[in-house]
Design a protein around this nucleic acid. Structure first.
Lengths: 156, 156
DNA sequence: TCAATTCGCTAGTTTAGCTAGCGATCAACG
DNA sequence: CGTTGATCGCTAGCTAAACTAGCGAATTGA
């Protein structure tokens, strides 16, 4: 994560520390998701799909099988099978797309939402507790930084 | 991510924004890793193993198959197969553990390190460019925040 | 209008996870 | 010491979940 480039100034040191922490944070996220996958008895892909659906739903956006396929970077065939699994287990439903009769809209069930927040809730509370310890100005900087870095690594 | 609990104060709003950005950032990380998995023609687990090895190596720590198994949350059998794959593809080597003759130490090859940074380099530069735009005090706050949140979601 | 494209699905194959269990080694205790 | 129980990585065999190839229906645009 810092193979080439040797830090010189104190500012460079601070940059390096942040990059280090990003890596560790990424690692913590992976482990959290790994833990949830165990707790909820699901595989990594299905859980990632659930997370995407929860997120997009909160933004008021709909999700198509094709969207899931692109986001998870799996083939459309694998996506179909995944939707079969998740809909057999009662996590979601396929509904007709309002304007395109070829398409589908994937919708979470209430049971699925509840289950997700039941397992994710603890982590969410933990994060909120941490964030509460920072003042508004700091939170603003942090939010902006995360958005900037997110853009940098995934310009989609 | 903010299902129960309705924000009241401006500070609550700021907390909510940060949580929102954490989620988006987590998403961007997922997509970045997904992209690398495609570029490097590897599966998600193998790439995650590589990332762990790179990270631990930089901290000067050694990694055993058992460490990988715990970190990736896969069985020891799956870990063995994964090590078979990665060592067949020239990414790593199993070496005898210095003190425990049952154990192994997993070591990256130079080719693997180079390949990783060749693909990851662009993202790394992007992150560094972003971080450079923040001053030392801000970076310190950000680094601390990331460490705190990381601890909160994965107390390991 | 009609050719090209996009959507989700099916069929069949390959990859990569799992459980169960083994031999070798290590650490602790009488 | 010597025995006993735990731990390490591995093998064998099974199952789950990805992939490629290709299809019909619906949409788009020349």
């Amino acid at each position: 994560m810092s193979q080439p480039w040797t830090p010189q100034t104190p500012h460079d040191m601070a940059v390096m520390s942040v990059l280090q922490e990003i890596r560790a944070f990424s690692d913590a996220l992976d482990r959290m998701h790994g833990g949830m996958k165990g707790d909820m008895d699901m595989n990594a892909t299905d859980l990632a799909a659930l997370r995407m659906l929860i997120m997009r739903e909160q933004r008021g956006e709909t999700v198509s099988p094709h969207d899931l396929s692109k986001h998870l970077r799996i083939s459309s065939a694998s996506t179909t099978k995944m939707l079969d699994r998740l809909s057999a287990s009662g996590h979601l439903e396929r509904q007709p797309h309002p304007h395109d009769r070829r398409g589908r809209v994937v919708v979470l069930t209430q049971a699925s939402r509840s289950e997700f927040f039941r397992h994710f809730g603890e982590h969410l509370r933990g994060m909120r507790t941490v964030a509460d310890r920072y003042d508004e100005a700091q939170l603003e900087v942090i939010a902006r930084f995360l958005a900037d870095v997110g853009d940098a690594i995934d310009p989609a």
